[in-house]
């Protein structure tokens, strides 16, 4: 074996390896293999002559109906689109936007205090600075309960998808904006709270430690040392979650209620596939606009820091 090969082999042996990572990869691959072999999926569920015929029929039905049986005329198509826009889409679009905004603001307001009580460094028995005496069992227990409780609530509300929350809340409060707003706010406060707590735990310790060192109570450390420092991060996450809120808000209407989803559902139920596609495209444009706006805001925040 040449010297070069030996060296290469040596380098190869020295490369960082991790058993857990490897097992994870293998487990994931096994999971995927099992999924495809679980008997739930057959190619015939999508690829068959019947399906091809259905798809073809669908494709002919999504052209605007005034255009059926004649050559494509952009004037007629535009008139049709404008009428739909004025009659339904505009209002549903505004409602969808309002849902997402109402929800994300509520989520942010709820998540901010929860991220404070979920952060192990701030809510721990000795925030940021060790006292000469070890904390008593009471202080330790209270801190553990507060942190544990907040974290369990956060993970539970974010484990349940918006759509399920909305379904349950519609069952309780009936149709209207509140179930959708509550559902979006609940799920997203779980995510924002988790991300906020992580950011607090990763903060530089300087300012809060100094505050604590001159005897500031926990509340003052939180208000003066932690919140201002974590705010830029939190706002970045806020806008990132708002994007998903817009996405989800378009869909929640399918349960009934006010957003674009209800138009899509109704158009499908009536077999007006041309209108359905129009609303789907409106929803996609709204999502796109939300992404752009949120990107702008995040850029503005990044430059501000």
């Amino acid at each position: 074996m040449s010297e070069r090969e030996l060296k290469l082999r040596g380098l190869r042996d020295e490369r960082p390896r991790n058993l857990f990572t490897r097992w994870s990869l293998a487990a994931f691959a096994a999971l995927v293999a099992y999924s495809w072999n679980s008997g739930e999926f057959h190619a015939s569920q999508v690829f068959s002559q019947q399906h091809a015929a259905n798809a073809l029929r669908f494709l002919t039905e999504i052209t605007p109906y005034p255009l059926h049986g004649r050559a494509f005329d952009p004037g007629i198509a535009l008139k049709w689109a404008l009428e739909l826009w004025k009659a339904h889409a505009m209002e549903a679009l505004a409602a969808t936007l309002a849902l997402s905004l109402a929800a994300i603001v509520a989520a942010g307001l709820a998540a901010l205090p929860m991220s404070l009580t979920a952060a192990r460094n701030l809510a721990g028995p000795e925030p940021f600075i060790d006292s000469p005496r070890a904390p008593g069992w009471a202080a330790r227990t209270i801190a553990a309960v507060v942190i544990g409780l907040t974290r369990s609530v956060l993970i539970f509300v974010r484990a349940i998808p918006e759509y399920v929350w909305a379904f349950l809340f519609i069952g309780i409060w009936g149709f209207g904006p509140w179930p959708a707003v509550l559902a979006l706010a609940l799920h997203n406060s779980g995510i924002l709270g988790k991300l906020g707590a992580e950011s607090i735990e990763n903060l530089e310790r300087g300012a809060p430690t100094a505050l604590r060192g001159i005897g500031a109570p926990r509340s003052s450390v939180a208000m003066a040392g932690v919140l201002p420092a974590v705010m830029p991060r939190f706002l970045l996450y806020f806008f990132y979650r708002w994007e998903t809120c817009v996405r989800e808000a378009t869909v929640l209407g399918m349960l009934g209620g006010v957003s674009l989803g209800s138009l899509i559902r109704d158009a499908r139920a009536a077999n007006f596939y041309d209108e359905m596609i129009f609303y789907v495209m409106t929803a996609a444009l709204l999502v796109l606009a939300g992404d752009l706006l949120s990107g702008l805001a995040r850029g503005c925040l990044r430059r501000g820091n």
Binding site: E40, F41, H42, A43, Q45, V46, H51, N54, A55, F58, L59, Y163, R247, E248, T250, V251, M254, G261, I264, R265, R268, Y273, M276, V280, A283, A284, L285, V287, L288, D291
Partner: peptide, 27 residues
């Protein structure tokens, strides 16, 4: 952009209309 601007449930409804929803089309 086109793929991700349409929510998965809307894709599901589109498949429902075009093909009929099965396990595979849901995936």
């Amino acid at each position: 952009t086109m793929m991700r601007s349409v929510h998965e449930l809307i894709w599901a409804v589109l498949f429902l209309a075009a093909l009929g929803l099965s396990n595979l089309s849901a995936v």
